[in-house]
Design a protein around this nucleic acid. Structure first.
Lengths: 220, 220
DNA sequence: AACAGGAATTTTGCATGCAACCAGCGCGCG
DNA sequence: CGCGCGCTGGTTGCATGCAAAATTCCTGTT
């Protein structure tokens, strides 16, 4: 059983990466059981790297690990979902402000491109590609975080924001909220181009408030 | 070889706990090598749980893990140390405000006790027990985080604040700054007792600014 | 004496084997 | 009829063995 692509990293690392991707993409549904042997067979490795991967993902908070009873994809309560916005409110506006000072023209161009593509994903409706929209959105926000260049804020955010949540929430946007959200992205690019930190931070606040409203509405 | 205390948790978990404690206490110095066999012998387990523990601690960020080259206690650059205060500024005042609303009398009493004990650790000088002071300080801030009861903010904070840093910084306090810091703790208790969120948040901001000033001064 | 090259040693990564443990089920007892 | 107990199938936790990678040290050459 030789590995086909002979990349240069350990199998544990690749297993972590694969599982993370599967969970983030929703292919492994929240709450579902993660049997070691089953995953080992599916990913064509032995149980050992799978065990290590599950342990690390548990430390990351993506997986719930109960001694002698196995691993499950972690589930998120409504309260936790709500609390997530506290963190985003506390970090992302600041990161946007920082980014306004430091971002490179190349990065703003990339952001503009992402924003356009999101617009092209179309309004709510049948042909809408939410998967794509979510992916672009993740990259958009990720880029701003990178541009903000504050590792501490970044890890704080990453430590709390669990993207599956964000993905899920896209399904709940109504037409108006989605239009606002996309407009925010455009305006954010403008603010960053103008190097106006306050503007960028303000729009980010609005952006998150809008998202939060969507979530709270549908959480009933 | 049967384990003597037959507690009810896995050896991996206990190994994680032990190593974390050793690192946080500074017994394992930052940058030092963490050989698997060596740790296995020292903790009297096989290499397997040690490996799992190192992986999880790496996911937590306490340990640096390079493929095929082993694990080291993670080191922290000055920039990372500075960025850490961004996170604390972004989260702890908010948590203090939340705590003002929700904290129980029992918890405020406990905070008051911790504050007194910190005062009793005495001023800067020869007989000063910085180890004890750091431990009490950790519990103090931890209690406020708990009382704030925002899991997302809490994990964001935990994801970025690495206690060894805090411990180290205690060595740098001069007499005035330390006195201020201790006074802040006392005043924070008062603000929480009064259920005044703005007051609590304001003091927390001052508290962190003070600590930040101490750090920046000695980082030069 | 300094250095390049290469074997020997050490250490990590992974697979496998086995014991401990949990869940589900049937049986006997109250 | 309900409840507790032991048993069995399956899963997890851990120790050990071996191969690959990396580090160290030795050796031969200039």
């Amino acid at each position: 059983m030789p590995t086909l692509h002979t990349m240069k990293s350990t199998q544990s690392d690749r297993t972590v990466e694969t599982l993370r991707e599967l969970i983030l993409r929703g292919e492994l549904v929240a709450g579902s059981r993660l049997g070691e042997s089953e995953l080992a067979a599916r990913l064509d490795v032995s149980r050992t790297p799978v065990r290590e991967a599950l342990g690390r993902l548990a430390a990351e908070g993506l997986v719930e690990l109960v001694p002698h009873r196995g691993a499950r994809v972690r589930t998120w309560s409504a309260a936790e979902l709500a609390g997530l916005f506290d963190v985003r409110q506390a970090t992302e506006p600041r990161l946007a402000a920082l980014a306004a000072d430091r971002i490179t023209p190349a990065a703003t161009d990339e952001l503009a491109r992402l924003s356009s593509r999101m617009l092209r994903c179309g309004p709510t409706g049948p042909g809408q590609d939410l998967e794509e929209l979510a992916a672009l959105n993740r990259r958009f926000h990720g880029l701003i975080v990178t541009a903000g260049d504050s590792p501490a804020l970044a890890t704080a955010l990453a430590g709390a924001v669990r993207p599956p949540v964000v993905l899920r929430n896209f399904h709940r946007y109504d037409d108006d909220s989605l239009r606002r959200s996309l407009a925010h992205h455009e305006e954010l690019v403008a603010a960053l181009r103008a190097r106006d930190s306050d503007w960028a931070a303000a729009i980010m606040v609005a952006h998150l408030r809008n998202a939060r409203a969507v979530m709270l509405r549908s959480a009933s």
